[in-house]
């Protein structure tokens, strides 16, 4: 009697544990919101996506928090930018999470920057140049054409990891790409007045965006990439802008707006907060909203 009751208890415990292990959905760990949104779009209900950072955090300066290690432990696929953007925290997470599936070289290790051609590859690698990245500028998500390229590679990778859902990944990719290409055409048309406009940026994180829409970067608030703006550098920039004015001073939502505001007040050049990634502004709810809002905000000040 007691043996059969023990057996019953054992079966119940097993039954309780089984849903955990039999969870079929692909567990995705996305480093940045744009890749989280993309993985959700392509993964649909076949993927559970965790996004490690928000649009209000600086992706260079994330700490390997215990919560991130715990999430990485169960991931089947990590989707990160790469190109050393996460060099301060991703290697540490990978070492601490004891998860063989997402180590470099495994199918579960996917870097978006490896799918596109990087701009601003430094010719001189020296830390006196600031926080530069040897592979090139990692902020690739500001050009929607890059997102289309990453989407294709990501769908292929997801299908490789989870062949039973391959058809679904492909279907959602085709659907997304269709809407995305139309949206790109729409954005390019709307953004035509931005072509050739001179802008000042807080951090050197817009080269892909500038190349896409033909904007012209004439200054940076940071004296060197990753080094916060100094009064001396801002004063010098102010003098330079007096002689050669720009149309806008832009910065990402996660950055301190005060240096841009100061310069805006001194020069009369409007300052614009751009979402930079999904969630950066209220309107940037998804990838489409990200570019809609970015272009809207620029068109308000650049005519």
């Amino acid at each position: 009697m007691s043996t059969s009751r023990n057996t019953l208890v054992f079966i119940i415990i097993l039954a309780l544990l089984t849903p955990l292990s039999a969870q079929a959905a692909l567990n995705v760990f996305a480093c940045e919101p744009e890749w989280g949104a993309l993985a959700r779009t392509i993964g649909g209900d076949a993927a559970t996506v965790f996004t490690a950072t928000t649009a209000h955090q600086d992706p260079h300066h994330i700490q390997a928090r215990p919560s991130l290690i715990a999430r990485m432990r169960r991931a089947d696929l990590l989707v990160c930018t790469g190109a050393e953007l996460e060099i301060g925290w991703l290697p540490l997470l990978l070492r601490k999470a004891h998860n063989g599936r997402v180590q470099p070289g495994q199918l579960g290790y996917f870097l978006a920057a490896n799918q596109v051609r990087l701009l601003e590859r430094p010719t001189r690698l020296d830390r006196s140049e600031g926080d530069i990245h040897a592979q090139g500028n990692p902020h690739i998500q500001t050009d929607p054409r890059n997102i289309a390229r990453v989407a294709k590679a990501l769908a292929a990778r997801m299908a490789e990891l989870d062949p039973s859902q391959a058809e679904g990944y492909h279907r959602r990719l085709t659907d997304f790409d269709d809407r995305w290409q139309k949206a790109i055409a729409r954005w390019e048309q709307r953004a035509a007045p931005l072509k050739g406009a001179a802008i000042v940026v807080h951090h050197r994180q817009w080269p892909y965006f500038e190349a896409w829409l033909g904007l012209h970067q004439v200054g940076e608030l940071e004296p060197k990439p990753g080094i916060p703006p100094t009064p001396g550098h801002l004063a010098e920039l102010k003098a330079r802008l007096k002689a050669n004015p720009a149309k806008a001073i832009i910065h990402a939502a996660y950055m301190d707006p005060s240096p841009a505001r100061w310069l805006s007040q001194k020069t009369g050049i409007p300052e614009v907060t751009l979402p930079f990634t999904v969630g950066g502004t209220d309107a940037a709810k998804d990838l489409f909203g990200l570019f809609d809002d970015t272009i809207d905000r620029l068109l308000k000040v650049i005519q």
Binding site: L20, P66, S67, I69, A70, R71, R73, R74, K96, A97, H98
Partner: peptide, 11 residues
């Protein structure tokens, strides 16, 4: 030897 629990809470 270290063991990390498969939970959202870091253990």
């Amino acid at each position: 030897v270290r063991w990390l629990a498969p939970t959202d809470l870091f253990v």
